[in-house]
Write a protein that binds this DNA or RNA. Sequence first.
DNA 1: ATGCCCATAAAATATGGA
Length: 262
Amino acid sequence: MRLTTWNVNSVKARLPRLLDWLAEVRPDVVCLQETKCPTEAFPVGEVGVLGYAVAAHGDGRWNGVALLSRVGLDDVTRGFPGEPGFAEDGVPRPEARAIGATCGGLRVWSVYAPNGRAVDSPHYAYKLDWFAALRDALASEIAAGPLVVCGDYNVAPTDADVWDPALFVGSTHVTPAERQALADLRDLGLLDVVPTPMKGPHPYTYWDYRAGMFHKNMGMRIDLVYAAADVAARVRSAYVDREARKGKAPSDHAPIVIDLEP
DNA sequence: ATGCCCATAAAATATGGA
């Protein structure tokens, strides 16, 4: 089974590249993040032509996640129990940041963690709350069967996952609390499936659009595949498809491609 | 080579991304 995850930064803007990539890579299951489109506006027909069933979860101009599968797409769950909303003005508003489904016997989640914006921002507290609720929700999921949780976690697990750790001191994505949130997820029994970079020593998955960051390989590893032990044991290969970050109108994230033993 | 911000909603800028 070929499983992939990709923050596409708008499925509408990325559709031509997404369709070309699907035809070339032929994944069985695709986790998408930052689709930036309402659930009903997802281009179901376009990806359907390539043989994919679609489960989308969107809330308008921001966020949005989806799952594509050509090996079955059952028991779709939009959001998770206890998932907090962002309560900027005291009114919690739910956001589309997680969708789960069972694909070919594997329970798959596509997640898009809150950015956090700044350590003193309410968005940062929301980010930590969201991770804590995700951990609680996944505790029962991991007990139920083979589980993999893919997506944009918006946290670099270690200093080696950032091109210049000194620049990030005091910023989100690298704080001890955020890294502890990842450790708490791993403590459920999830393993970090670290992909092979196609170039250089760092399996970065994100490079800012500005200042030629991709071309200088000044990136971050913030897209992660967290797999239960039985799933991690089936990993034949995993790599960052940095080819998808090149050329005209790319996303600022590259996909991760994981091949699992049957 | 990989090539130097982008997407969205909205109508010139404002916001979010990380």
